[in-house]
Design a protein around this nucleic acid. Sequence first.
DNA 1: TATGAATGAGGATTCATTCAT
DNA 2: AATGAATGAATCCTCATTCAT
Lengths: 208, 208, 208, 208
Amino acid sequence: MNIHSVPDVPVPMTSRVLDAALAVFTERTYGGATVPQVAERAGIGVGTIYRSFAGKEELANGVYRRAKQAMLDHLVAALAAVGSDTGARERVRAVWSGLAAYAAADPDGFAFLEHQQHAAYLDADSLGLARRIDVVAEELVRDGQRSGDLRGGDPAMLVALVFGAFVGLTKQRRSVGTTLSRSDVDAAGDAAWHLVARPVTPTLEDHP
Amino acid sequence: MNIHSVPDVPVPMTSRVLDAALAVFTERTYGGATVPQVAERAGIGVGTIYRSFAGKEELANGVYRRAKQAMLDHLVAALAAVGSDTGARERVRAVWSGLAAYAAADPDGFAFLEHQQHAAYLDADSLGLARRIDVVAEELVRDGQRSGDLRGGDPAMLVALVFGAFVGLTKQRRSVGTTLSRSDVDAAGDAAWHLVARPVTPTLEDHP
Amino acid sequence: MNIHSVPDVPVPMTSRVLDAALAVFTERTYGGATVPQVAERAGIGVGTIYRSFAGKEELANGVYRRAKQAMLDHLVAALAAVGSDTGARERVRAVWSGLAAYAAADPDGFAFLEHQQHAAYLDADSLGLARRIDVVAEELVRDGQRSGDLRGGDPAMLVALVFGAFVGLTKQRRSVGTTLSRSDVDAAGDAAWHLVARPVTPTLEDHP
Amino acid sequence: MNIHSVPDVPVPMTSRVLDAALAVFTERTYGGATVPQVAERAGIGVGTIYRSFAGKEELANGVYRRAKQAMLDHLVAALAAVGSDTGARERVRAVWSGLAAYAAADPDGFAFLEHQQHAAYLDADSLGLARRIDVVAEELVRDGQRSGDLRGGDPAMLVALVFGAFVGLTKQRRSVGTTLSRSDVDAAGDAAWHLVARPVTPTLEDHP
DNA sequence: TATGAATGAGGATTCATTCAT
DNA sequence: AATGAATGAATCCTCATTCAT
């Protein structure tokens, strides 16, 4: 039924609630969503939600955590696929593809993660998970900078630029109602590579 | 007091309300903000808000419109400053600086505009304004593509990538609590240029 | 301009306010009317109302009192016109015509007086005035009963029946949007007379 | 508990709310009543009201409809009791008794129906019901006029006179705090009969 | 004197949460 | 375990009243 479900296995309650909550929170924002709306979407009674989650806030943390973890899993899987001894370009490509894979597999999850102001309800665990993904990405950038393949500057900034570019892309696609094709992803990924690649022709300017 | 105020002139009610609403909406999201919170922030009574705005929704449209217009003004001003006969690189730089100038002058406004799900309350006028800014940017990209300075592909996609990169940058800075320095902006702008620049034939330079 | 105004004399503030308040209270009920609505109807500022009346409640008492007094005046005038030495039939006719004259001259006032639940805001003076009109009518009934022209029973009850019949008539006419013609009034007045007239011994006439 | 309840059956929520709303609306007018007042009277939470009724307006329609229907039922029952082949006098008596029976069984309902300005919130269904009761009464008058038992004139007017007289009676009784006794009703009903009866040729009796 | 902007208590309505079934 | 009726605090909004102009 969705990225988080397994065929032929009855979807457990918690998962159904998270699915519904993700859909509703994504569509209406945490603050704009109501628990009854989540219940209706899940096809269950309101009270049932409270059997799995202490309240709306914990529910939102559950949604956030599951999505963030899935995104991390996709990134890690994409990086693992190219191996750890490839060049920076391959690894950036892998990251970009990993993001695309997750965004394709769980568009609502991706969109939800991009909402601003999660701060109002995120707990320490959720924040820690968010931090881990940043750390992975920043480490990657540092590696690339060390090898001379990536441009210099604050790794966090480069990560933010690439990640932001990808988010911008998905947002635009969402606004026009289309999905990213394989070639769109590749074309944009190529562009994103140049965003962080050590500029060519720099030979003259950088080291005269 | 803020980007929208003029020294030594008493701030009109509407403006005070918009200022407060922007701050509260940005901090807590439209759905998470309450009208009393806005009133308290503005230092006025709740009822006073309803003298200037028909309701929370119209208030949010006012906030959105003012911010979007200011962003557009900054972009137009930055482009006007470099003239219309400059090369693509100069113009991309101008756009990037214009965004930075607006984000620096009105950080809350910039952040608010980046919120997702404005759709729940934006009216036709607001949507029209949003569209205008996109049109300006896309036209710029088309020009650059025609002259061969920018890479090919859907102009809207390139705009989304650049804009997204900038948003990612501001978001990251906000999360660590620092502001963008002039050199940060320039460094990131240089990176963003390569995001859209026509790639130098990679065969020779990259793998000689 | 209305029953309470005199030609060529500028309408004093208090009167304008009462006129507007009567119209609004009649149309929307005391509880459903707002002071700003009264102000707008009067073509004046809200604050101005509070220069003549301490509040909405006192305003309603003013409206009530003026209307009740006008009704009393009409009744007294009609009775005076037929003199005090006429028969019961003439006097009942006079009362009926007096009511009709007032209802014609000040339809809103008449309708307002018929609203239920004035009790929520009427003060002692207003209640006293209301009582006076009842006393006049009951005394009239008692006279007629003494002379043998009117049927027996609680005078207050007979008054209530006649008065109620008249109110029912005006209400029905209001609901269909027509006004009472002279002949309507007379026909209904004739019927009303039989309501209180001492019945002719039915044994002979009805079953000869 | 009231006219609408059945012994030994737990009063359903809707009914409890209607009972309370009737009491509060009757006492304070639709515009002057508040939903919390209704809730308190019903001994339930405010939110509970909104489970049975969409809002104050729909609640008022429910109250109106239930009362109007009950009044209609009483009239129909009273008419059925005398049969359709009786004379006009019997049928007028039946109507009068039916009104009295309803007013006795549900004084608040009767009083509420007499409020003016229901128009502000009544919906089409409620208005249709109101019309039905008028149609029944007018048809009765037309029958009586055809048979020569009732005086001529617009049937709606005669209905209005009789109905108005009854309303005047209940209003007066309410104001003095007493209830109508059987003999009061009969005495007043006799008077009301003469209100609509074809007058006996006045020439002989009045001026022999 | 007349005004109407400003106010905040109060009104209608919603919604997170509980708990008896 | 699951439900959804019931709740009342919290929300949006209105309006009687005040007061500086």
